[in-house]
């Protein structure tokens, strides 16, 4: 009937006590309490018996060998069977780039197209104003590198390209877009029927990038599906 009874021992403390995982201070406290508290002592003894029963549980023998056969491995294939990380990244990067390029293309392609439509239905005065605006847009779009400009020219008549070959890139661009060997400065170029060039070379170039990316996407998709 002690008036000052120490705190009861929790199941967690009993469990750690059984496993010798209490620090010395806690262990001494548990030992002292078990001396004076019958209910905690019963809880401890029963838990200790339970652990002993578990430890004495018989081991069962494996009913057979679980070794893998060649047949198991045939269906399983090599250990590293899952799709490699690079393929997942490639698929993600190509898909995102493809969407970005399509978006860029739509953005660039809409303006000339709208101007084309407008030109068909407007009187001559306004047409002149619009063509000037178009010319500005054409100039603003970045010029292709000298090599690609030359390549464009080479597709045209041989003598023409021979005369322009040495011209600076800006002139090469304008002459190629008006489809002739006429040498004009960019400021004068817009006036005339060729001013509203159907699509700037950048858009053409983008189309090829799109086709390439679409092909790449298809290849990656097939790889993804039929990965061994």
């Amino acid at each position: 009937m002690g008036v000052l009874r120490s705190r009861h021992v929790s199941d967690k403390e009993l469990s750690l006590f059984i496993d010798h995982r209490l620090n010395s201070r806690d262990r001494q406290r548990v030992e002292a309490h078990l001396q004076e508290c019958a209910s905690c002592r019963r809880a401890y003894e029963d838990m200790q018996a339970t652990v002993l029963f578990l430890q004495q549980m018989p081991r069962v023998a494996a009913p057979r060998a679980f070794t893998l056969t060649e047949a198991d491995v045939q269906s399983v294939r090599k250990p590293s069977r899952s799709r490699p990380v690079w393929l997942r990244w490639a698929a993600a990067v190509v898909a995102v780039t493809f969407l970005f390029v399509i978006g860029l293309d739509l953005f660039l392609a809409t303006s000339p197209h709208e101007f084309d439509q407008a030109l068909l239905h407007t009187p001559a005065e306004t047409r002149a104003i619009i063509t000037k605006e178009v010319a500005k847009v054409v100039q603003v779009t970045p010029a292709p590198s000298q090599e690609s400009a030359k390549a464009l020219l080479r597709e045209e008549s041989a003598p023409a390209s021979a005369t322009v070959e040495s011209a600076p890139p800006a002139q090469a661009l304008s002459s190629s877009s008006i489809r002739g060997p006429v040498k004009v400065t960019p400021e004068k170029a817009p006036v005339g029927d060729s001013a509203a060039a159907p699509s700037p070379p950048l858009v053409d170039w983008l189309k090829w990038v799109e086709v390439g990316l679409a092909g790449l996407l298809l290849v990656i998709l097939l790889l993804y599906i039929f990965w061994p």
Binding site: S10, D11, K12, S15
Partner: peptide, 12 residues
């Protein structure tokens, strides 16, 4: 530690 103590206590 806590899961083991609870499991042992329940089994007991």
């Amino acid at each position: 530690k806590s899961r083991l103590s609870r499991a042992r206590a329940r089994l007991r």
